[in-house]
Design a protein around this nucleic acid. Structure first.
Ligand SMILES: [Zn+2]
Ligand SMILES: [Zn+2]
Ligand SMILES: [Zn+2]
Ligand SMILES: [Zn+2]
Lengths: 165, 165
DNA sequence: AGACAAAATGTTACATTGTTGCAATTCTTT
DNA sequence: AAAGAATTGCAACAATGTAACATTTTGTCT
């Protein structure tokens, strides 16, 4: 069996996980010439601190808990920036946001969502995306972006495990 | 090129489309022993009248326009019933609902969503679903339901066409 | 440095979407 | 008919998302 995504590994070094994501974002924005301001960095950090997608108002609360007073419009604007720059993804089915582990603007997304603990892992794009796009094309539909969301149980929860980090 | 889904065929007999869907729902509920009450039937009809997904409040408005006074909680309950019985699907990315053309409780969903005219077509489950589930399984994730949403342009809109029904 | 323009953030007020709780009604079973 | 379950009506409310405008910060050009 292949290695489970980091989000599902209960023992993984999550501080490192967040740290690496922030560094990758800093590098990415420098390369693109976009501005990862302190506020945006804090929002991104809050999102990454959880492998369970966070809602906009939960991000507000998280920042307030860190002594930052930030209101919804500001959060939504920061999230808009982060999403446009491929640093977070919006999980529409949950009204919540998750950090992207493969920054770089627009790409198709494939997600595994545990219905028990809420953890979400993003998979790298696979060739079944291309097959689906080809299938749509045969129906005369030009697909620009494709999202696949699988809801089920992660290994820990399937094993009757406790809720995760 | 294969035949485009009915939702994307501007000339299709949409009255027939709605009529067939309602009949299929009636048969399905009779078989399952569930109750497609007048209210639920009206909600289902309102949803089917549009191949563009309707929000809950739009359904309210549609019913009011037909002389029915119905409030949100009632709509949401009817939609919950319809979704549980596989008669409508919720498009989370749009906070809206679309009729299912292949009733029968829980099945994976694959949708083509036109970003220009908003029309949505549901495709029958394909084998790329199975491949994806197998891939998830190899990562120790038990997928129970999978949704694929492709956003792009339908043939009419790609051709610079007008907005559709 | 000083002046200006652009971008980002703060703030208020509001719009939209979805839910809780309970009363009234309708359907089913005894 | 009487009791019990399911459905619907209704009022109030919670959660999510946005519009409009003021203020601050940042970058650029003299
Ligand atoms: Zn982590
Ligand atoms: Zn889990
Ligand atoms: Zn139709
Ligand atoms: Zn279209």
């Amino acid at each position: 069996m292949r290695q489970a995504p980091a989000a599902f590994q209960r023992g993984h070094d999550h501080d490192q996980c967040v740290h690496d994501a922030l560094n990758a974002a800093i590098v990415h924005c420098r390369q693109e010439g976009t501005r990862l301001t302190p506020l945006r960095r804090k929002v991104l950090q809050a999102v990454w601190r959880s492998h369970v997608p966070l809602g906009a108002y939960e991000i507000c609360d998280a920042l307030v808990a860190h002594g930052e007073r930030v209101l919804p419009p500001t959060i939504y604007r920061a999230l808009e920036f982060l999403e446009n720059n491929g640093l977070v993804h919006r999980m529409a089915s949950r009204n919540a946001f998750i950090g992207c582990n493969q920054p770089g603007a627009h790409h198709h997304g494939r997600y595994l969502i545990c219905s028990a603990c809420g953890l979400v892992a993003e998979l790298p794009a696979g060739d079944n995306m291309d097959r689906f796009i080809a299938e749509a094309h045969a129906l005369n539909f030009e697909a620009r972006s494709v999202r696949v969301e699988a809801v089920g149980l992660c290994a820990a929860c399937a094993a009757g495990g406790d809720s995760g980090p």
